[in-house]
C-alpha cells in the first residue's frame, strides 16, 4: 500500500511513512507491553546502577528466569487466545521433574528414554484435558483444576511411596545436560528454547491456517464452528502444547538443578496467564500475539529479578507486580481501543 506513490510523490512518502508505521505499531496487541518493557527496564537499570544488573551476567540472570516462565507462557497464551485456561501446568511441571529424577536415578532408565516418556505422558494429560473440555463443555478452569490437583497428588504420592520424600537428586550425562541445561557464560540454553518456541508460535499465529483457527475459536466459537473451523482439534492441540511446554520446563529445571521436586511449578499456574495478559492477550480469548507474551515475560523477569539487585526490602515485590499488572492491563486496554476504533 505504501508503495503506490513511490514514483510520483516521493516527498509525501517520506513525510508520512514513519507516522503510519508508528500508528500501525500502536495497533499491535503488544504495543502496550513494548512500552511497559522499555519503561520497566530503564527504571531498573537506573535503580541498580551500582550492582551489575545491566551487565552480561545480570542480563543472563533475568533472562534465565524469564525463559522458563516464557516457554510455558507462550503455550498458555495461545490457549488463552483460543478461549481456554490450563491450570494443570503447575502439577505437570512438578510431576515431570520428579518422574525424570526417579526414573533415571532409581530405575536407571536412560535419560533420553525418560525424557521422551515424561513428555509423552504429559502430552497424554493435555490430550485428556482437551477431550474432557470438548466432550463435557465444562469450563476449562474447572477441568484443569481437577487435573492440577490430581496430577499433583499422584506426583507426591508416587514419589513418597517410592522414595519416602518429594525431592530426589539426579545426575545427567553431558549431552542431555548440554541440550536442556547448557550454559554460555551464565546464560542458560532455556533462553534459546524460549526464543525458538516463541518464533514458532508467532509463525503459526501469523502465517498458517491453524493460527487463524486459533483466533477464530477464541473470538467467536459458534461462528468459527459454523464456518468449518475444527475448533475441537484446535483446542485439544493447544492443551497438548501447554502440557508439553510445562513438562519441558520440568525437565529443564530437573536437569539444571540436579533434582526433581514434585511441588515445583505451582507458581507458574498464575504467573503464565498473568504475563500473557501483561503482553496484551485478552483473557476472554480471540486477541493477542506471541511477541506480546514474550515481552510480558521480559517485564516479569526484569521486575522479579531486578528487585533483588536493588537491595530494597523484598517484602514489596508483590506490591510492585500488582501495580504493574494493573498498569499494563490498563495500557493494553487503551491500545486495543485505539486499534479497534481505527479500523
Amino acid at each position: 500500500m505504501t508503495e503506490v506513490s513511490a514514483s510520483s510523490e516521493p516527498w509525501r512518502k517520506r513525510g508520512r511513512a514513519p507516522t503510519r508505521r508508528l500508528r500501525r505499531l500502536l495497533r499491535r496487541p503488544e504495543a502496550g507491553a513494548l512500552f511497559a518493557a522499555i519503561a520497566v527496564y530503564l527504571f531498573f537499570a537506573w535503580a541498580t546502577r551500582e550492582t551489575n544488573f545491566v551487565s552480561l551476567n545480570g542480563t543472563a540472570a533475568w533472562l534465565n528466569s524469564a525463559a522458563e516462565l516464557g516457554i510455558i507462557s507462550v503455550a498458555v497464551g495461545l490457549l488463552l487466545i483460543a478461549g481456554e485456561f490450563d491450570l494443570s501446568i503447575g502439577s505437570i511441571l512438578g510431576a515431570s521433574s520428579i518422574a525424570l529424577a526417579i526414573g533415571t536415578r532409581l530405575f536407571h532408565i536412560d535419560i533420553w528414554i525418560m525424557v521422551a516418556l515424561v513428555l509423552a505422558g504429559s502430552a497424554l494429560i493435555g490430550f485428556l484435558n482437551g477431550l474432557i473440555v470438548e466432550r463435557t463443555r465444562l469450563p476449562s478452569f474447572i477441568v484443569t483444576l481437577a487435573t492440577l490437583l490430581g496430577v499433583s497428588g499422584a506426583g507426591l504420592g508416587f514419589s513418597r511411596l517410592l522414595t519416602n520424600t518429594t525431592t530426589v537428586s539426579m545426575t545427567t550425562p553431558p549431552l542431555a545436560q548440554a541440550v536442556f541445561a547448557g550454559r554460555l557464560g551464565q546464560a542458560n540454553i532455556a533462553i534459546l528454547w524460549w526464543i525458538l518456541i516463541t518464533a514458532a508460535a508467532a509463525l503459526v499465529l501469523g502465517k498458517t491456517a491453524f493460527g487463524n483457527w486459533i483466533y477464530a475459536t477464541g473470538g467467536n466459537l459458534e461462528a468459527a464452528r459454523t464456518s468449518g473451523v475444527p475448533t475441537a482439534r484446535v483446542k485439544i492441540a493447544l492443551f497438548v502444547a501447554t502440557a508439553v511446554a510445562s513438562s519441558l520446563v520440568g525437565v529443564i529445571q530437573a536437569i539444571e538443578f540436579h533434582s526433581g521436586n514434585a511441588s515445583n511449578g505451582q507458581g507458574y499456574v498464575f504467573q503464565a496467564p498473568i504475563v500473557a495478559v501483561i503482553g496484551g492477550v485478552l483473557l476472554g480469548g480471540g486477541y493477542g500475539s506471541a511477541a506480546g507474551i514474550f515481552l510480558g515475560c521480559v517485564i516479569y523477569g526484569v521486575i522479579s529479578v531486578g528487585v533483588f539487585y536493588t537491595g530494597w526490602n523484598t517484602d514489596w515485590i508483590q506490591l510492585f507486580l500488582g501495580g504493574l499488572l494493573l498498569a499494563a492491563v490498563m495500557a493494553n486496554s487503551y491500545f486495543r481501543h485505539l486499534a479497534l476504533s481505527a479500523r
Partner: peptide
C-alpha cells in the same frame, strides 16, 4: 532478610536469581 514471594517459593530458578541479586546488591 530477603523474602521470596509465595508463588516462587518452590521455583529453583527464581530463588537462584534472587540470591544472586542480593549478593550483587551488597
Amino acid at each position: 532478610m530477603i523474602t521470596m514471594s509465595t508463588q516462587d517459593m518452590q521455583n529453583p530458578q527464581a530463588n537462584l536469581q534472587a540470591i544472586k541479586g542480593a549478593l550483587q546488591a551488597d
